[in-house]
């Protein structure tokens, strides 16, 4: 009985994995098939002819690299800003006693009560008013407003887990408040900071709606809207190029994940305090 059950569970698990992984697999396969092979019937599972021509075309003939650069700048800047503000904010919410700090913490979550489409127009008008329309900076501002509340809460719970005595010890040992924060709090907070950074980076890398509305000049477009704008028209979808672009869009996320994942596990180990 147990044996049967195990087989059943394994099958089910693999089915789920397959369902998730197959589109990714198909994306990669499509991106390296020559154009004529794409719509052949029956479809080829593995490409008969392997080609990188789509990648070459994307990199040389299109504005892909500009969009890519924009996305990197956009996601990195947003991440740095969000992590910096959220870290300091979380520190303040956890360590300092002042009137209304609990209310403040709840208040920042209010942004999540409204659907983001509702906020879109007011935000757009505000950004136009301050002269940021059609810039990467406008998207940085917009994404910061989505990511910051969640980041603040995430880091607040990590911060609350750091014993106050650690900081007191650093103060007695001769550190200034800032020194104690830098020497003791930040290293303890590293896993939290990495989780927050990952969350923010992915959010800003993948966002579509705001990018579509707030930016319509090619020089400032990020990858999501840029690629769709360039390859999808009313008459034609350039499937091979689209898939090649999708693969290249995923690469940075995979790299970031692979790099930070080892950090994450190591960070969690280092943060362990004996009760």
């Amino acid at each position: 009985m147990r044996f049967v059950r195990r087989i059943f569970f394994n099958l089910a698990a693999w089915a789920v994995v397959l369902a998730v992984a197959f589109p990714l697999f198909w994306m990669i396969v499509t991106s390296v098939k020559p154009q004529f092979e794409l719509f052949r019937r029956p479809p080829t599972f593995l490409p008969d002819t392997f080609t990188l021509e789509h990648y070459a075309r994307l990199l040389i003939d299109t504005a892909f690299l500009v969009y890519f650069k924009n996305s990197v700048i956009l996601a990195t800047t947003t991440t740095v800003i969000v992590v910096a503000i959220a870290t300091l904010g979380a520190y303040s919410l956890v360590r300092f006693r002042y009137r209304g700090r609990e209310n403040l913490a709840f208040l920042v979550l209010f942004t999540y009560l409204l659907p983001s489409v509702v906020l879109l127009l007011p935000l757009y008008l505000m950004l136009v008013r301050v002269g940021l329309s059609n810039t990467i900076a406008s998207l940085v501002v917009a994404y910061t407003t989505f990511a910051l509340p969640y980041a603040l809460w995430l880091l607040r719970s990590f911060m609350a887990g750091i014993p106050e005595d650690l900081e007191s010890a650093a103060l007695v040992d001769g550190a200034s408040r800032l020194g104690a924060f830098w020497d003791v709090i930040l290293p303890q907070l590293l896993p939290g900071i990495i989780s927050t950074a990952l969350f923010t980076f992915i959010l800003s890398w993948n966002e579509y709606l705001y990018a579509l509305v707030l930016v319509n000049s090619d020089s400032a477009r990020p990858l999501t809207t840029g690629v769709v704008n360039m390859l999808v028209s009313a008459f034609n979808i350039e499937w091979s190029l689209l898939m090649a672009a999708s693969v290249m869009m995923s690469v940075p996320l995979i790299v970031v994940f692979a790099f930070l994942q080892s950090y994450l596990t190591r960070g969690f180990g280092a943060g362990a305090v004996k009760g």
């Binding site: 007191s168 010890a169 290293p187 943060g271």
Partner: peptide, 20 residues
């Protein structure tokens, strides 16, 4: 006077060793 300038040393009930 802030703790750093008092020329004192303290052992905490929780030890408060820097884990990293």
């Amino acid at each position: 006077v802030p703790p750093a300038k008092r020329d004192i040393a303290m052992v905490f009930q929780s030890y408060a060793l820097y884990p990293h």
